[in-house]
């Protein structure tokens, strides 16, 4: 089982390849879209590379859910994620760090949840499960 540091460095190398960014641009807090310029097709590319790099299967929508709320008013009201929506997000993405987002849960900030750290935590969880 690789250490968190080893996973992070592999994730970081994967992002260098997929997004054509320099390694020194990447920090654990970097957001994939905002900081590293990922576009929709890049997310699929990242998934393919992570699967090859770590020898795991990443089912569609598990790491990068395509549409969590689908405009459901129970989950989103006036551009903000409701309590129920937050619970749904946590259930779908237990590997996301929601702390900052919960303070100001605007829907438009959801993409900021997707950081390099989020991928690292996801992979770590995945490797732990496959080991057991």
């Amino acid at each position: 089982m690789p250490t968190q540091e080893e996973i992070y460095s592999k994730v970081s190398a994967t992002l260098v390849e997929a997004l054509n960014v320099d390694e020194d641009e990447i920090t654990p807090e970097s957001t994939l879209q905002g900081d590293l310029g990922a576009e929709s097709i890049d997310f699929l590319d990242i998934v393919f590379r992570l699967e090859r790099e770590f020898g795991i299967k990443i089912p569609r929508g598990e790491l990068f859910p395509e549409s969590i709320f689908q405009g459901d008013p129970e989950f989103v009201q006036d551009g903000r994620v409701t309590e129920k929506g937050l619970a749904e997000l946590k259930a779908r993405m237990p590997f996301a760090d929601m702390e900052q987002f919960e303070q100001n849960p605007e829907v438009s900030h959801i993409s900021d949840l997707f950081t390099v750290d989020l991928i690292t935590r996801y992979i770590q969880g995945k490797l732990e499960t496959s080991k057991n």
């Binding site: 699929l44 590319d45 393919f48 699967e51 090859r52 569609r60």
Partner: peptide
């Protein structure tokens, strides 16, 4: 082929 899945391939 490196990867082939329902969503696409590389």
């Amino acid at each position: 082929i490196l990867t082939l899945r329902a969503e696409g391939a590389s």
